[in-house]
Amino acid sequence: MLLSIITPTYNRGYCLSGIYQSLTEFESADFEWVVVDDGSSDDTAFIVQAWVEERKINLRYIKQENSGKTNAVIRAFAEKPTGKYSLILDSDDILVPGALELVKEHVSILDEGEIGLTFLKSTRSGELIGSTFKKNTSNYIDMYFGRFRCFGDKLFVVKTDIYNCSLVVSYPDEKLIPEGVIYMNMQKFGKFRCINKIIYSGDYLNDGLSVDTIRLAAKNINGFILEKQMLQSQPLDLLSTVKNEIKYIVYSIAGRRKLSCVLHNSHRKFLTAIFFIPSLVIGWKYIYKIRRFSRSDNVK
């Protein structure tokens, strides 16, 4: 099988039909849809089970206790997806007509050292989200931090075995590892072929992960710190290096890590020491908000 489409979902029964409808319109059956229900309390199970029984597409439904998007994706790969390539499609996104043909066309001409593809995203009305690619091939760091960087959400179609071994389990009492961590882990295997074509679309919903970064950081502070630590080891330009250093310090202090721990865990100890005080001055509002959200969530 060519492709495994993995969708982690939590109380999103009301919007999963968009994906299902888009998949039923594909001319080829050379794909599977793996839905991981992350402990939903709505009618997700009833909705998806009806589609399973229809047998219009290859559909697997997996139910687990709520443990977050990261661990839902890990569960999907633990169930051994059958596709040679895999992609993660959020529950509020859909694949556009011809998406499967686009994947088929471009994986057939991948060069040695290319581990997959990356495509563009649009709104449901067809407006491009972010920017186009400036290079034909790229790794994650060059793509988002290099001289010819792009911005905005992209969809990554990656060899399934590489996707699987690049995943990182979330920290105890947390539910999310930022996706940048996974894509940085993939860099040791190769690069992505960058395709300037829209393959999926979606609008940001009020209950989506992108809505409130501060609250998300408060709930997953160790995962956010990990991403900034990993970025410290990457060849970023000067401005990006400084911004990342400030974020690393702000998240670390918001997570109540002592100065000695912040310095010990830093991959750029000299820069961390230099920017420690300025980061506190610049970021004290964010530190306060993250701690406040963390306290309120713990009370609940």
Rank of each mutant, 00 (worst) to 15 (best):
E101A: 14
K188N: 02
S210N: 13
K285M: 12
Y61L: 11
Q49V: 01
D37F: 04
D93H: 12
E112G: 12
T24G: 01
A273C: 15
L263C: 15
K219Q: 14
I253L: 13
K197W: 04
A72S: 15
W51S: 06
G113Q: 08
L87T: 09
D153K: 15
K69F: 05
Y248T: 13
Y144L: 10
L259N: 02
N244A: 15
A254G: 04
A99D: 01
L95G: 06
V299K: 09
M186N: 05
L95I: 10
V73H: 08
I162G: 05
D153P: 09
F46I: 14
K63Y: 03
I253D: 13
F31P: 01
C165E: 13
G208P: 00
S122G: 05
T9F: 03
D90M: 12
I198L: 09
L226K: 10
S240C: 11
K104S: 09
Y10V: 06
R193S: 04
L110G: 05
K219L: 10
E53V: 12
H264E: 14
D37E: 00
D42L: 07
K289A: 02
N66W: 03
T213I: 15
K135M: 15
F156S: 10
V169K: 13
V157Q: 06
E174F: 12
D142Q: 11
D111C: 12
F46R: 07
L120C: 10
G98F: 05
Y200E: 14
L100P: 04
V36R: 05
E53K: 13
E227S: 09
S22A: 07
R124W: 05
L280M: 15
A254D: 11
G190R: 08
K188T: 01
E101I: 08
I141T: 13
Y61R: 10
S67C: 11
D38W: 03
R295T: 10
D43H: 01
L176V: 11
L239D: 15
P235A: 00
I162Y: 04
G116M: 14
D142T: 06
N220A: 02
S170R: 03
R75V: 07
V52C: 09
N71Q: 06
L280A: 08
D153R: 14
A254F: 02
E114H: 05
Y183F: 11
T44R: 04
I246C: 15
R291P: 03
S252K: 07
A78F: 11
T160D: 11
P178H: 08
A76L: 06
S170P: 09
P235D: 01
T9W: 00
G190H: 08
P235C: 04
T44P: 06
K159F: 06
E179P: 00
K56G: 02
M186V: 02
C165W: 00
S201C: 07
P172H: 07
P8C: 04
K228G: 03
L16A: 06
S4P: 04
L3G: 02
A99I: 11
V52W: 02
D237E: 07
I182F: 03
D38L: 05
E127H: 13
I182A: 14
K69Q: 03
Y251N: 13
T272L: 14
A76Q: 04
K300I: 13
Q234Y: 00
S17W: 00
F156V: 07
G146A: 11
G202D: 01
H267T: 06
V181I: 11
G18R: 01
I74A: 02
L3I: 00
K175Q: 13
V181G: 06
N185W: 09
P81F: 05
D207I: 13
